[in-house]
Design a protein around this nucleic acid. Structure first.
Lengths: 114, 114
DNA sequence: CGGAATCCAGAGTGATACTG
DNA sequence: CAGTATCACTCTGGATTCCG
């Protein structure tokens, strides 16, 4: 659900800056696999194939789409090494690292109730 | 995206309890309006109509569905007062309150980058 | 190896009409 | 006031195929 504050008028947003902020973050994290990808990349640089292997049966098309969105939102970095065969590595940006506290709190909740 | 750990086999889950926990939390929070509803209910008991008014042009059908899911997942409580006209109030459960730290971290991120 | 392009099924969302 | 029921639409994720 890639939607960020649609349906809210300006007055509402001005009066609810906190909710606007939450909505923005929800937008960045929207997607079935974003949480897993970020979690897998924390503190490590990973290759495309390794991410795919880690996530199981996820199709290439879907994985690439999620990675592109994360890259465009500035939370992951994509480094291409023009070798043969080609090598592409992904890692978290500083911005991406700032998402980890959210994942940690989600982990806490899930471990208590899941 | 009401999906919780589909596509992961048991071995994967056993080796990745933290991701399983995150996935569970993502499941509980999945839905366009869940974050807003929880945020609006923090520390307060609210009536159905007030929630609807707060969220803007959201249709009754959609709001009811989100509230039902939150109730079934045990994060909000629904109290019915059989008056005329009827009154229904919603509030966070203890479990629901445990979700607030996640929202706070999301607020932090959104205020820094949104 | 790491994609891009295309198509499709299904979930999620919402508008509308009706009810106790 | 606070729903339920139905229908229609959109968007995402996934399968498939092809490429440098």
């Amino acid at each position: 659900m890639r939607v960020c504050n649609e349906g809210f008028d300006k007055a509402f947003i001005d009066e609810n800056r906190d909710m606007y902020a939450i909505s923005f973050t929800q937008y960045v994290l929207s997607g079935r696999w974003k949480y897993f990808i970020l979690w897998y990349l924390r503190g490590e640089t990973r290759r495309y194939t390794d991410i795919k292997k880690f996530l199981g049966g996820l199709s290439q098309g879907s994985l690439t789409k999620q990675l592109r969105e994360l890259e465009q939102d500035g939370v992951i970095k994509r480094d291409v090494y023009p070798e043969v065969p080609p090598r592409v590595e992904y890692s978290l940006t500083d911005k991406g690292n700032k998402l980890l506290p959210i994942l940690e709190k989600m982990e806490d909740f899930g471990k208590e109730y899941g």
